[in-house]
């Protein structure tokens, strides 16, 4: 469960003051498939970053499970992200010098998982995203869609509580987008994995079970479909 209460975020560089979030309250339950939508500059990415512990709120709390991540130190936050949150980025952001298998395995290595466990989970995840025959390819040897599927497998590798995906389909063609959404939807259905997207891709919005619309730093609507 993700519980965001009275969260505000203000950027102030001394000259310009921008209120990116203005008192956001939202709860996302386990197993949800949620899209946060809104126009550019609406605050959806800021909200996603704050939920992911990549940014800190100016005011308010973000409670994940039983942890108020707004109170964690920088190192504690890094550790929390490793063990509780999976990230999928718009530009995939795989490690270019590692193969698909090594990219997926990477976070488990940081978690000091055994080799047997790493091998088993890596194989399972790459099979789940349909890339069992691409395990030794490096990112530059794969298409954008394949890279994003590796990114999803990587995000799942550390057994996170939920996955945050920032515009995951923005750089993908229609076929790749449909394929990726199918995979994420299946993981949500079969493994009850929680997904939270920030997007303005209608194809993602159409598949979401819940759509939260953000505008001018406030939640404009919150609809279960």
């Amino acid at each position: 469960m993700i519980k965001v209460t009275h969260v505000t975020k203000t950027y102030d560089d001394g000259k310009v003051r921008v209120e990116a979030l203005r008192g956001i309250n939202v709860e996302i339950k386990n197993g949800e498939f949620t899209a946060i939508v809104g126009p550019s500059g609406s605050g959806k990415t800021t909200l996603l970053n704050i939920i992911g512990g990549l940014d800190t709120p100016t005011e308010g709390n973000v409670i994940i499970g039983e942890t108020n991540i707004a109170l964690l130190s920088e190192n504690q936050l890094i550790d929390f992200r490793l063990n509780h949150i999976g990230f999928v980025f718009q530009s995939y952001n795989l490690i270019p010098v590692l193969t698909a298998k090594e990219n997926v395995e990477f976070l488990m290595l940081l978690q000091n998982k055994s080799e047997a466990e790493r091998d088993e989970r890596t194989t399972k995840l790459l099979k789940a995203v349909g890339l069992e025959d691409q395990i030794n390819k490096k990112p530059n040897e794969m298409s954008g869609g394949q890279q994003q599927r590796v990114a999803v497998a990587r995000a799942l590798a550390s057994k996170p509580d939920f996955i945050l995906a920032d515009e995951p389909t923005a750089n993908l063609d229609s076929a790749s987008t449909a394929n990726l959404l199918d995979i994420m939807y299946r993981l949500n259905q079969e493994e009850n994995m929680t997904f939270v997207f920030s997007t303005h891709d209608q194809r993602v919005i159409d598949r979401a079970k819940r759509v939260i619309t953000v505008e001018d730093g406030k939640i404009l609507s919150d609809i279960y479909t």
Partner: peptide, 15 residues
Amino acid sequence: FEYGVLIAVGMAKNK
């Protein structure tokens, strides 16, 4: 950029 990604996904800064 890469360092930012590594830290974002949970790699300690020391590493």
